[in-house]
């Protein structure tokens, strides 16, 4: 069981997330949806231990956590085999024949058999994503964090990647937390969902239950987000309070698609 309680983080004077709390059952998949700039990636990086929160507590129940980055973060100068061999050697001290067997098995799992000698720039976007997933999963993490796993992919490739994530989760018995702004994909991936709702005091996470519960929600903000409605309690484009009161404060507003890092 993953338990997150009271997480808050601000950059400079700018609150990013505030009092975020949720639980994820073992082997479940929890998807965090949210508006652009609501702090989804910041939250994921806090869960991964890459950012220290100002307040709150994260209990992952294990230190064996893997993360798949939005841009895959593959080593361009290493071929497919070497990209997969790297974490095996560094994290598990597995080399030689054992490594080869494992790499072949994972390439088969993610649908990339026979690509060992290719370099990342010789793979399509979808194939790079599969390789990124294989590289994170090859060390068999108990918890897998996905940052926008289907961003920039066409809808069909993106559906296939989501299917792959679900299949691998079942085969490996892992727990999944994913952040995305793609509602359709969120519904496909999730057992339970939360939506990060922007607010001037930092985004709050609204737990909206299963995909069916989310689709049928009568909560105004949830409905507005899911349907992409203009009218509703959520606002998207506002000059942040920080800059109304502290002009020239530098560039701490996250505004951007994901986060300031």
């Amino acid at each position: 069981m993953i338990e997150v309680s009271g997480l808050s983080k601000q950059f400079g004077f700018l609150p990013i997330i505030s009092d975020v709390r949720f639980c994820v059952k073992e082997k479940d998949s929890y998807v965090i949806l949210g508006q652009s700039g609501s702090g989804k990636s910041v939250l994921l990086k806090i869960l991964a231990g890459l950012i220290i929160p100002d307040h709150g507590h994260v209990s992952m129940g294990t230190s064996n956590v893997g993360m798949i980055f939005q841009q895959n973060a593959l080593f361009d100068s290493l071929n497919v085999f070497e990209n997969l061999a790297f974490p095996l050697k560094e994290k598990k001290r597995i080399t030689g024949k054992d490594a080869t067997v494992k790499i072949e098995k994972f390439l088969e799992w993610v649908g990339l058999p026979g690509t060992e000698k290719l370099f990342p720039n010789e793979l399509s976007g979808g194939m790079q994503k599969r390789l990124g997933i294989a590289r994170a999963l090859i060390v068999e993490p108990e918890v897998v964090l996905y940052d926008e796993p289907t961003a920039g992919l066409d809808p069909i490739t993106s559906r296939m990647i989501a299917d792959l994530i679900i299949r691998l989760k079942k085969e490996m018995g892992s727990t999944v937390i994913a952040v995305t702004s793609d509602v359709m994909r969120g519904f496909q991936l999730a057992d339970e969902l939360g939506i990060l709702m922007k607010s001037k005091t930092g985004s709050h996470l609204k737990n909206v239950g299963s995909p069916t519960e989310a689709k049928n929600s009568t909560d105004e903000a949830t409905r507005q987000f899911i349907k992409g409605l203009k009218e509703g309690p959520l606002t998207t484009e506002d000059v942040p309070e920080t800059h109304r009161h502290h002009h020239g404060l530098s560039s701490f507003y996250l505004g951007m698609e994901d986060d300031p890092f």
């Binding site: 484009e237 000059v239 505004g255």
Partner: peptide, 16 residues
């Protein structure tokens, strides 16, 4: 026009 003197990182992504 109140955003004229701000710099891009100081406004939201949608505004950018």
């Amino acid at each position: 026009e109140n955003i004229l003197n701000l710099k891009p990182p100081e406004i939201s992504y949608g505004m950018q």
